[in-house]
Amino acid sequence: MNPKILIITGYGLNCEAESSHAWTLAGAAPELVHLNDLIERPTRLHDYAGLMFIGGFSYGDHMGSGLAFGARVRHHMQADLAKFIADGKLILGVCNGFQIMTKLGLLPGLDNNYFTQSVALMHNDCGAFQNFWVTLRFEEQSPCVFTRGLGPMPLPIRHGEGKVFTLDHALLDRMERLGCVPCRYADPATGAATDKFPLNPNGSLNAIAGLCDPTGRVFGLMPHPEAYLFPENHPQWDLQKLRGELPSQGAGLKIFQNAVQFLKLT
């Protein structure tokens, strides 16, 4: 049976269509549920194997991206989210979804503490919202189930507040040691992580593009894998086609396929 995925919508989130399409292509059964319908009966969360916080502009990013939506989720759903994670299920957050998860404290979720914010997603160093493509590298030693076995991946970024930041260097070191950094912005020429704009679009510490919890089942990232499902999404698909290198599907799909594979095996 195809695993059921809950996609929360409403209040300015806006990537529901492509996120839903991504899960469907990957072999899951996504359902869109408005936040207010979920809050009315939070226990329905447990009908699902996975949960996705999608991208968008919840509450217009006013007061800091993800703050208002995160506050609402925390207020109404904290206990059910804790149980969902303890039950071994999956949570994915993309862009604004990642920001919401970080504000909630779901990421990095060290020491089983999933509801205290410990890192920030700050304004990009360049000072503005940016939309262009970057290259991600994935860290093999991370427990992240979404990124297993992935090579360098081009994906678009579309955010104004994506800089992973903390003043606490000990925390940063622990996150790195525990493998909570599954992906980084990389230089496509060398494959190495980079601080250089625009390869690193926001000045993120350690070039961090996404974080997972120590179990690897809770994962969020700034770039948009759901926006690279068609091969023609790639900005140089025209050249790839001419050279016979056009893939049959967009690379972003692999992240969803990894998740579905994990759910089908557990």
Binding site: F129, R158, F230, E232, P235
Partner: peptide
């Protein structure tokens, strides 16, 4: 132009900027 989101919905084919350096 880069400050406008051109890719939400994931349907773009020929984008506003093209070329090997986009």
């Amino acid at each position: 132009s880069r400050q406008y989101d051109g890719e939400v919905k994931g349907l773009s084919v020929v984008k506003p900027f093209v070329g090997v350096q986009s």
